[in-house]
């Protein structure tokens, strides 16, 4: 396991700039996420780390070694693709064993490691199956086994779960994290799904428009987004300017604030203050809402401001109800516009 250093990397497709001066330090053994909307450059960055493209500027290092100019096959990687990319003319064992063949691992050891890898992903005994006979989830596991069997120094994952259904995605998320932590490989994972990133990453980088907007642990990025874009990307966010902040909480910490929906407390009409915070309540009206079982998501109008509120274990409410909205001023996080 090695740390991965990306320094000042820029890249353009023809005339279109895609990455602009990206720098990241990924620690050894870390499960690092690149998160962002489509077109933000995350996949491109991953492909640069993989070596499929060469950056126009900047340096990529694995440990101390400069791999910027090194061809892919010499970087000792493992890679899991969005479309699995299993070779249809080889069977499952053949796919998994391929990397070991490249490493010139001998026959019996190779077979043993292939079996172990398949067992690790829960596909023992599937070695002789044809790729076309497997389901999507099974194919992805084979792809994973293929990527890790060679004990790579860096593991790259390009939206590996986006082609799977929701339940499978959740399952596999856990599997991937377990396998990565077990082998201790440095892993870089690209996704547009913020829930996935928040749930699985050690640290993540939010990318917007070819630049790294914020790097940090999931908790840091979620609770303290650095700007409005990051805030909006990592879940629902209420953005309040100075005036709105004062109106709601009596205090403003900066020019623009981010307020998470789950931080807003709803009380019945007319409650002067709620709970420990002692914050003053603001009268509001329920505009709209969706009951989601374990919680409800409401849109409320508090003195002219539209707010999104998430309430766990919600009581029965309906549109038009009068409520009191309570916000602790500390929950207002200052963000860049």
């Amino acid at each position: 396991m090695v740390p991965v250093t990306i320094q000042g990397v820029s890249f353009s497709y023809g005339a279109t700039p895609v990455l602009d001066g990206v720098s990241l330090d990924i620690a050894a053994g870390e499960l690092f996420f690149l998160l962002g909307a489509s077109g933000c450059g995350k996949t491109t960055l991953l492909r640069l780390v993989a070596g499929f493209e060469r950056p126009d500027a900047g340096v990529i290092r694995f440990g101390g070694a400069d791999v910027t100019a090194l061809p892919t096959e010499r970087r000792n990687l493992g890679m899991v693709f969005q479309n699995y990319c299993l070779w249809p003319h080889l069977d499952v064992a053949g796919n998994v064993a391929f990397g070991l063949e490249m490493q010139r691992v001998g026959g019996s050891e190779r077979a043993a490691r292939v079996d172990a890898a398949l067992a690790a992903v829960g596909l023992s005994g599937y070695g002789a199956r044809k790729v076309g006979e497997l389901s999507g989830g099974q194919q992805q596991r084979v792809a994973l086994a293929r990527a890790v069997v060679t004990r790579p120094q860096v593991l790259l994952l390009d939206e590996p779960l986006s082609n799977l259904d929701a339940r499978l995605r959740q399952e596999m998320r856990g599997e991937i994290r377990r396998i990565c932590k077990q082998s201790g490989t440095t892993a870089i994972y690209v996704t547009h799904d913020q829930a996935e990133a928040l749930a699985t990453a050690d640290r993540l980088a939010v990318m917007v428009g070819g630049r790294v907007a914020q790097v940090g642990t999931p908790r840091e990025c979620y609770a303290r987004p650095v700007d409005a874009a990051v805030a909006r990307f990592l879940g629902e966010a209420n953005l309040l300017d100075r005036a709105a902040a004062i109106r709601l909480t009596g205090r403003a910490n900066g020019e623009l604030h981010c307020l998470r929906p789950e931080k807003i407390r709803l009380a019945g009409a007319g409650a002067p203050s709620v709970g420990v915070t002692g914050a003053p309540g603001v009268a509001a009206v329920l505009i709209d809402g969706a009951y989601q079982g374990d919680r409800a998501q409401w849109t409320v109008d508090a003195s002219g401001l539209r707010l999104t509120v998430v309430e766990p274990d919600p009581p029965e409410r309906k549109a038009g109800d009068a409520v009191t909205v309570v916000i602790a001023p500390d929950d207002l996080v200052v963000v860049q516009p």
């Binding site: 499929f52 892919t72 096959e73 070779w87 060679t150």
Partner: peptide, 12 residues
């Protein structure tokens, strides 16, 4: 991408 996968597995 199938060729890229092979490169990632160390094939020249």
């Amino acid at each position: 991408a199938l060729e890229e996968a092979a490169a990632a597995c160390g094939a020249n």
